[in-house]
């Protein structure tokens, strides 16, 4: 039984990272009906930028660990958000009226471009974060070993998600984002600046993705230029699993995917872990084609 709970906690940390990235997918999908394949690479860029800032500016040494990390996170978020906005302006905005799949190809192109740009700038080798920034204390509760950092990762992602949820639900901009995701034209008629809303989404999504990248870098300590591909794909599954376009759905999807993977690996086979995740996804989509929390939206005719 303790094995089960240990694997559950393992899965929750993995899942919270997925959820954080999935939010970017789901928000962009909500307002633009576009699968932003380059989102995983924004996550990678966040991880690499964090590394550069950390080693070049030595932020944590100058400001102390806590304030240093918050400054670092803020800087990474801002920089990745700038790249996200540029990405939208260059690769997606000209294609708003084009067929849906053209934007998908453009997104794939952007993904290839960003991934290889990272490789050319930072090299193909695995890059390693400086050690000993985060506390390495491990909690031992009832035979469960939970490193404190994992708890911190989980708590941080949860906090970010709750803030985002409140932002979407309670603020005026949030309402506007929801309106745009339902109907572009009607929102325009209501006086919403659709372009501005899309820009805001391309600030929030990449910023969250970038912060996820930073967390991965800080905790796991190594980053490589292709990691965005697998994290991105997983997060995308998570978004669909929860019901794409739905923000609590992305959180739920991410966490459940993490748990499915952990338990699948624990009780079936580690080598088949990803296949199990995809299999569950397919099964859920067959029985509930819009994902766990997805609402049935009438297809536009």
């Amino acid at each position: 039984m303790e094995l089960f709970f240990q694997q559950l906690t393992n899965g929750l940390t993995i899942g919270s990272i997925y959820a954080l990235i999935a939010l970017g997918y789901t928000m962009v999908y909500g307002v633009m009906k576009l699968i932003n394949f380059a989102h995983g690479d924004l996550f990678t860029i966040g991880a690499y930028l964090g590394l550069t800032l950390l080693t070049a500016l030595e932020i944590t040494k100058q400001f102390g660990t806590f304030i240093g990390l918050i400054t670092l996170a803020a800087m990474v978020c801002i920089l990745v958000a700038v790249i996200g906005v540029l990405l939208e302006k260059i690769a997606y905005q000209p294609l708003r009226k084009a067929p849906r799949l053209s934007a998908v190809v453009s997104a794939l192109g952007a993904s290839i471009f960003l991934q290889n740009a990272v490789m050319l700038i930072y090299g193909a080798r695995v890059r390693v974060y400086p050690q000993n920034i985060l506390p390495s204390y491990t909690l031992n509760i009832l035979e469960l070993h939970i490193p404190i950092v994992r708890v911190l990762i989980f708590a941080t992602s949860l906090l970010l998600m709750i803030v985002l949820y409140l932002f979407i639900q309670k603020t005026k901009t949030g309402v506007a984002i929801r309106a745009v995701s339902i109907d572009h034209i009607a929102s325009k008629l209501m006086g919403i600046n659709v372009n501005k809303i899309i820009m805001i989404v391309f600030i929030i999504g990449p910023a969250l993705g970038g912060s996820a990248g930073l967390m991965v870098g800080l905790y796991y300590g190594q980053v490589n230029f292709i990691m965005g591909w697998s994290y991105g794909l997983k997060a995308f599954i998570a978004a669909i699993l929860g019901g794409i376009g739905n923000i609590p759905g992305a959180m739920l999807g991410g966490l459940s995917l993490g748990i499915i993977e952990a338990l699948g690996a624990a009780y079936f086979s580690i080598a088949w872990k990803d296949a199990i995740a995809f299999f569950v996804l397919i099964i859920i989509l067959i029985f509930k084609p819009t994902g766990i929390l997805g609402e049935r939206v009438a297809e536009k005719i």
């Binding site: 240990q6 393992n10 993995i14 796991y220 190594q222 490589n224 292709i226 990691m227 624990a266 580690i270």
Partner: peptide, 13 residues
């Protein structure tokens, strides 16, 4: 699965 970051599940198993 290579190129992932979290192997705690594997280690626990």
């Amino acid at each position: 699965t290579p190129k992932e970051n979290d192997y705690t599940v594997t280690l626990t198993k």
